[in-house]
Amino acid sequence: MTLSNYEAAQTEPANVPLTLESGKPVGLLRRGVEVFAENKLALAGVAVIVVFLLFCFIGPLIYHTDQIHTNLLDVTLRPDGAHPLGTDGSGYDQLGRLMLGGQTSLEVGIAAAVLATFFGTLWGAISGYLGGWVDAVMMRIVDGLLAIPALFLLLFLATIVTTSKTILIVVIALVSWLGTARLVRGESLSLRVREYVQAVKVMGGGGTRAVLRHIAPNAVGTIMVNATFQVADAILTVAALGYLGLSIPPPATDWGGMLSTGLQYAAVGYWWLIYPPGLAIVLVVVAFNFISDAMRDAFEVRLQRR
């Protein structure tokens, strides 16, 4: 048997057919989807995310506003027919700004989560697979970075570089991959002693092959659940940075920056500058958390049989 044939024969646990009480064999993936679909909060979460994605990315194609040029003659207007959510302190239409800000928050949040998950997965998988002193060094690096308060690191990084979407993604990913690395390393430690990984070694397979083809894919449940939580965390981080005035410069914006600006007007009661971005942040983060919870149920075999 060649190595490739062996690997093909060693189907991963996610594809192993199970026989449930009914006696009918059901794939883990399918069962996972069913478990996910049973979770009403998760479905609501998906709906919220879809609505916000449509609102932020399709909305501007239908609801046209000028989010580039300020209009100082129309600042802080109350909501009316022309501006359903009023205007802000620079005369931007607030509804259009909510769409623009959402694009930043969602793009940066999702991209940072993906980047952090990818890097954290690789780091953790390699560390756990190799073990020994390499594992010790790699994990001490993670521990060392975890010891630095993330907000301090974010503020430091955001201060020394001129912020842009790309920079924000990288900066947030830089402080977000550590948790993923630890989780995947734990998975990797248990997976590397499995027979099919040992067999790859025996048959002459290299470490890269073992990590990329066996360890990482078999930790996919953990990784995906973690990634979804990462999205929620990253969106909150973008909001926090925006709130602290360290988000991308105008005329771009994000929900945190909008909230920060809006709060300057709290005392004069300009609610339309505060509640919409605040509500958007809360809804999207809660939605991602619902989805994450449901995914954990779906991928975790023990939780599937509730």
């Binding site: 300020t70 302190g89 620079s90 201060t159 410069p249 005329p251």
Partner: peptide, 26 residues
């Protein structure tokens, strides 16, 4: 607030005259 508004307004006006102003805060 008014400094931010001034800077946003300047960037906006400059963009219409072919001047790109890259704003950052500190």
């Amino acid at each position: 607030g008014w400094i931010t508004t001034l800077m946003e307004s300047l960037k906006s006006n400059a963009s219409q005259a072919g001047i790109v102003v890259n704003l950052s805060t500190g």
